[in-house]
């Protein structure tokens, strides 16, 4: 079974996590044109091999992670928090 090393919780079975999407996707501004929203919502690179993707530790600390994984061998190269700038983000919104 795939195991993912959560930065908070340590190495856990894949069944504790849910797969999100390709990590390079960033959502455009709300008033961006329809084409950039179309790209972000509907189109996928669908890489054969090494890719960065998001996973959520749903049945653990619930953080979103950026995982670098080979989609053919399932080997994982790195795991880090997706929102490293969360403190900055919170300041911005409050």
């Amino acid at each position: 079974m795939i195991q993912i090393e959560c930065p908070f919780c340590g190495k856990r079975d894949q069944s504790e996590f849910s797969y999100g999407r390709e990590g390079q996707i960033t959502f455009p501004a709300l008033n961006a044109d329809e084409n950039s929203w179309y790209d972000a919502v509907f189109l996928r690179k669908n890489t054969y091999g090494r890719q960065i993707e998001t996973w959520q530790h749903t049945h653990g600390c619930r953080s979103w992670l950026l995982v670098e994984r080979d989609t053919v061998t399932h080997k994982i190269f790195s795991v880090k928090l997706a929102h490293t700038d969360w403190q900055k983000q919170i300041k911005k919104t409050t």
Binding site: Q14, Y19, Y48, E53, T73
Partner: peptide
């Protein structure tokens, strides 16, 4: 299997 993959083998969950 709930996550993207090109491996033609399944996982235990």
């Amino acid at each position: 299997d709930w996550y993207k993959s090109y491996a033609q083998r399944g996982n235990l969950p």
